[in-house]
Amino acid sequence: MRRLATAVALAMALALGTQAAAATDTTLAAVKQRGELICGANGTLAGFGMPDPQGNWTGFDVDFCRAIAAAIFNDPQKVKFVPLTAKDRFTALQSGEIDVLSRNTTWTLSRDTSLGLDFAAITYFDGQGFMVRKALKVSSALELSDASVCVQQGTTSELNLADYFRSNRMSLKSVTFATGEEALKAYESGRCDAYTTDSSGLYGERLELTDPSQHIVLPEIISKEPLSPVVRHGDNQWTDIVRWTHFVMIDAEELGINKGNVDAKLKSNDPETRRLLGVEGQYGEALGLTNDWAYRIIKHVGNYGESFERNIGQGSPLKIVRGLNALWTKGGLQYGPPVR
């Protein structure tokens, strides 16, 4: 119902209001004036975006918003998180309810062009997978012809699922739910033979099942899912800030700068390090921020690798390997353009 409310609110705003912030005021100015960043996050996906029992939001996507807040306010706590379902998320961003959407969202051409939104940078290279019960004795997704598959609607997963079954000439019985939680619950109750979502999500959601050892993730990755934070189209300064927040976290990892040694690195003689941390040059001010913006990010949140390992990698219950998300120097795809 909340999704409907958001959609109706958007319709009303568009019909009755003049364009709220985008045309006259920049997002950065609005965020600074408000004193906090409003970040659309998942809310139910362990490792990526979920409040813990004390109400503190944690996760890989959450840390990304904290990094933006750190860059602007020098305080990673100045973020308000808004939990969104897959169906709500774009409407919430379009209507100005949130400043940035950091919620495992796939970058596609149609989303980039027709929603009035821009995708900033690929923070996680993902792909769609399937989870099934061990008892089903299925070892490949290609054996799933005629199976019932639970899926969250309004996702690329829903579309890829139909594509995959179609291109492999298998018949599909999909059951779609508004939220991932409902789809997962239906899968667990036996309504479906398989559950499908991005494989990063599968790892987290498998752990939420009553007995995770009874379920396996099938080896097939059936799609490309480049996950990216999203901003409104037309505010280029804001897009740059969000994009470069990701890039400096990558660059910091590549340069060996982390939470622990960032203060020491301020005295480094390496020109790349000095530019990144704002010791040399006015790169931060060019973005509309302070020159130590990247230092703040690394000091408060850490580099890309630290955020990855802490939330979804070896330091977390999910134990996801870096794979495609390793640095380009280590055989992965994560590559940060130079700060200069």
Binding site: R3, L4, A7, V8, L10, A11, L14, A15, A86, K87, F90, T91, Q94, S110, R111, S114, L115, G116, C150, Q153, G154, T155, E158, L159, V175, T176, F177, A178, E182, A183, A186
Partner: peptide, 29 residues
């Protein structure tokens, strides 16, 4: 119906179609 996955008008049209096309105003209207 939307909460239990029955494909009624709101689930299919104001759900999947709205999200894939992103055209909230037309779909909701």
């Amino acid at each position: 119906a939307v909460v239990i996955g029955y494909p009624d008008l709101v689930q299919v049209f104001a759900g999947s179609v709205l999200n894939i096309t992103g055209q909230a105003v037309e779909v909701i209207a």
